Simulated scan of single mutants.
Amino acid sequence: MNYEGVLTKMQTENGSPIQYYLVFENDFLNINQLLDKKIAINFLRYQCLNCSLQKKIYRQGFCYDCFYEIPQAAAWVINPEKSTAHLDIEDRNLEFEKRAQLQPHVVYLANSSSVKVGVTRKNQVPTRWIDQGAHEAIEIVEVPNRYLAGITEVALKDHVSDKTNWRAMLKNDVKEEDLIHWRNQLKKFIPHEVAAYYIENNTETNLQFPVLRYPEKPKSLNLEKTPFYEGVLKGIKGQYLIFEDDTVFNIRGNEGYVVSITVL
């Protein structure tokens, strides 16, 4: 069977295990059903996720021009502390920024390679944790806008990492952590204006990924250098496909690439 379309991050459904779906314009594919099967990935061309033109992808699935123009790629997306919609100050498009920034956000702890702090919109829990390959996570605060979440993350990352080691995550080289203990220890570093939003009595969320075998030495597939690849799928974790020969393919890192996927 053959599927063709522009890559966007896999959609997920939490379960035991998590279900993964690749959604194309005219088709979708449940990736879990491909475990232990040989598949081929063939890179065909680029397609910007914003303008849909066949222009080389620059970052986040967007061409160079769109990346520096559209609000979806503004600095506050990566650095939420730079949000200004709560002050009625426009960055690139105030209407869009108000919709995105002026909604409940969560600051959380997740354990994917080690304990890290992060920010997400409340409606992206637990999707954000799944995308990061975290096998456990817990919310610390729930705030009414992105700016407050951002300044909380900035304060806490002086005391805990805000990065995921993707190789350790994929190898499942992680240790169990008491996230409730971590949350309680970090409480004193929460900014004063956010203290009232601290979540006191919640529990950890545990996540189960569909992986038959973890890679020992993960090597990343680069479609520009290797436009055709085939291998036996052994797992899905985060936004990565894991293959029998230790090749791993980051779907989200290749958004905007048009591919054909063939089940052999």
Results as ranks from 00 to 15, higher is better:
E69W: 06
E69I: 13
E69Q: 15
E69D: 14
E69S: 14
I70H: 02
I70A: 02
I70G: 00
I70Y: 00
I70Q: 01
P71G: 02
P71M: 03
P71E: 01
P71R: 00
P71C: 04
P71W: 00
Q72E: 13
Q72G: 01
Q72D: 09
Q72S: 08
Q72P: 06
Q72I: 07
A73S: 15
A73L: 08
A73N: 13
A73C: 14
A73W: 10
A73R: 06
A74E: 11
A74Y: 04
A74P: 07
A75K: 13
A75M: 13
A75Q: 14
A75S: 15
A75F: 12
A75D: 15
A75H: 13
W76I: 04
W76Q: 11
W76G: 00
W76N: 05
W76D: 03
V77Q: 08
V77F: 12
V77E: 09
V77S: 04
V77H: 10
V77Y: 13
I78E: 15
I78S: 15
N79Y: 14
N79G: 02
N79I: 12
N79S: 13
N79V: 12
P80K: 10
P80A: 08
P80Q: 11
P80S: 09
P80F: 12
E81K: 12
E81M: 07
E81Q: 13
E81S: 13
K82C: 12
K82T: 11
K82N: 14
K82M: 15
K82F: 15
S83Q: 06
S83W: 09
S83G: 08
S83H: 05
T84Q: 14
T84L: 15
T84D: 02
T84M: 12
T84W: 04
A85S: 08
A85Q: 03
H86P: 07
H86R: 06
H86D: 11
H86K: 06
L87K: 13
L87A: 09
L87N: 10
L87R: 13
L87W: 11
D88I: 06
D88T: 07
D88M: 12
D88W: 12
I89S: 04
I89G: 01
I89R: 11
I89Y: 07
E90N: 04
E90F: 06
D91T: 08
D91H: 08
D91R: 03
R92F: 03
R92K: 14
R92L: 04
R92E: 01
R92T: 04
R92A: 01
R92W: 04
N93I: 01
N93P: 07
N93M: 05
N93F: 02
N93H: 11
N93Q: 08
L94Q: 03
L94T: 03
L94K: 02
L94C: 05
L94M: 06
E95F: 07
E95V: 10
F96M: 00
F96T: 00
E97Y: 07
E97D: 08
E97C: 04
R99M: 09
R99C: 07
R99V: 07
R99D: 14
R99Q: 14
R99F: 05
A100N: 13
A100Y: 15
A100H: 12
A100G: 02
Q101W: 04
Q101L: 00
Q101S: 07
L102Y: 03
L102D: 05
L102S: 01
L102G: 02
L102C: 06
Q103K: 13
Q103S: 12
Q103Y: 05
P104R: 00
P104M: 02
P104I: 01
H105L: 03
H105A: 00
